[in-house]
């Protein structure tokens, strides 16, 4: 009877020490859920969700403060992915936060630009190059198409241009088959 008790207490102590040690040794830095949600977001950093970027939105989702359908650039596929990850019901995109648009890049009309640097300060990914009183230009490959630079421009020289399809980014289409009228089938006589 006592032996069994000692064995159980001994085991409990041993396992407690092991668990306590590993809780300190293998402590997870940061919130892994936030990182996983953040990985699913498109990283446009556009703020359409109402948060100042994708990471803050991911944090808000993880805390349960934000809904999963507030990210228009992520589109329907993004909501599905978030619903899968979080094990919640899918819901259609909330139109309050905007509608999905084709992916675009900002283009600065360099003849009109006055070099005020306001767009440079607005760009969340430092994709605009320029200096005060010097012409600015967008590094197209880094631009996420967030449109945050459009509003601050005092001379309205920034426009969003959808990325055109070219042989380099062209995708094979899902196979579809034309339905053609069939030749009239001769009816077999019952006789």
């Amino acid at each position: 009877m006592l032996t069994a008790l000692y064995v159980m207490i001994g085991l409990a102590l041993l396992l407690g020490i092991v668990l306590g040690y590993s809780a300190l040794k293998f402590k997870v830095e940061g919130d892994p859920l936030v990182a996983r949600i953040d990985a699913l977001l498109p990283q446009t950093q556009c703020g359409q969700c109402g948060y100042p970027g994708c990471k803050p939105y991911a944090t808000a989702i993880a805390k349960g403060e934000a809904d999963i359908n507030q990210c228009p650039p992520g589109g329907d596929a993004g909501v599905h992915a978030l619903a899968d990850l979080l094990g919640v019901e899918y819901k259609p995109l909330n139109a309050e936060h905007g509608l999905p648009k084709p992916k675009s890049v900002a283009v600065i009309d360099e003849n009109v630009c006055i070099g005020c640097t306001l767009c440079i300060q607005a760009c969340p990914v430092d994709a605009i190059l320029g200096a005060a009183k010097h012409m600015h230009t967008v590094i197209a490959s880094e631009c996420t198409g967030c449109e945050l630079c459009v509003a601050p421009c005092p001379v309205d020289c920034i426009s969003m241009e959808p990325i055109a399809e070219s042989p380099a980014n062209w995708k094979w289409r899902y196979p579809v088959f034309e339905i053609k009228p069939e030749r009239p089938v001769q009816k077999k006589s019952a006789a």
């Binding site: 498109p42 990283q43 950093q45 994708c54 990471k55 990914v125 430092d126 994709a127 996420t144």
Partner: peptide, 17 residues
């Protein structure tokens, strides 16, 4: 994959900013 790569770069640039 390309979109994912671009998103990773954007995340990195945003964090750096």
């Amino acid at each position: 994959d390309r979109a994912k790569e671009a998103a990773d770069i954007a995340r990195e640039r945003n964090e750096f900013r």
